[in-house]
């Protein structure tokens, strides 16, 4: 990738983080929340999502390709930083580092999660339903791994919304950026509750 085009690649990375990947993550967590209403409700909701027309095209263009671009370019970005929290222990410096750590953890988590669920279904080994998740999450280590994964994703998305607003020049003044910090904190908490409640509904 040409360094002269860096600006456009970075803007694309930023945009894809929200549209479609961020929207998908939010939607995914909300649909999973049907699990709190019981097995049948979850199976109906996930069955509906899985039976959308052109589902494989939707998955490729709304999830896999944008996520892969964001993830691989994100790894490059994460490893070009030389973190210095011992020198500047400010909130934003820590959030900057956490954005990178959660991003890298998400690569591992998402790869594993897709392998364990969607990929198994694709090769016909298993079916994606309530029982599949209940089986996975019956292992306390896996439950822990999934909780960390979900919270990493909600943090990364919420803090990503904050930096998206700066990257596109929407929040400029220190005050508007501070308000965005509070708003994205609420988004982080709300999505985390939704995501973790859904996970706990399987155990």
């Amino acid at each position: 990738m040409s360094k002269d085009r860096e600006f456009y690649w970075r803007r694309l990375h930023s945009l894809l983080g929200i549209i479609p990947v961020g929207l998908f993550v939010a939607q995914h967590l909300v649909v999973n929340h049907f699990a709190t209403r019981g097995e049948e409700a979850f199976n109906k909701a996930s069955g509906f999502m899985g039976s959308l027309p052109f589902v494989i095209l939707l998955e490729i263009f709304i999830i896999y390709l944008p996520l892969m671009f964001h993830a691989f370019y994100g790894i490059y970005i994460a490893f070009t930083a030389k973190n210095n929290p011992q020198r500047y222990g400010t909130l934003r410096n820590y959030l900057f580092i956490l954005q990178r750590i959660t991003g890298i953890f998400l690569v591992v988590f998402i790869a594993w999660h897709v392998f364990e669920t969607r990929f198994q279904a694709a090769i016909g080994a298993k079916e994606v339903n309530f029982n599949m998740m209940a089986e996975i999450l019956s292992n306390p280590w896996m439950l822990g791994f999934y909780i960390v994964g979900v919270i990493s994703a909600t943090f990364h998305l919420a803090n990503g919304i904050w930096s998206f607003l700066v990257s596109w020049g929407i929040t400029q003044s220190p005050q508007s950026q501070r308000i965005a910090t509070y708003v994205t904190l609420v988004i982080f908490l709300a999505l985390s509750v939704v995501g973790v409640q859904a996970l706990l509904a399987f155990v």
């Binding site: 860096e6 600006f7 690649w9 970075r10 803007r11 970005i77 930083a81 210095n84 020198r87 500047y88 400010t90 934003r92 410096n93 900057f96 580092i97 954005q99 930096s163 700066v166 990257s167």
Partner: peptide, 8 residues
């Protein structure tokens, strides 16, 4: 675009 908003 290289800025990652650590704000140090």
């Amino acid at each position: 675009a290289n800025c990652g908003n650590a704000q140090n």
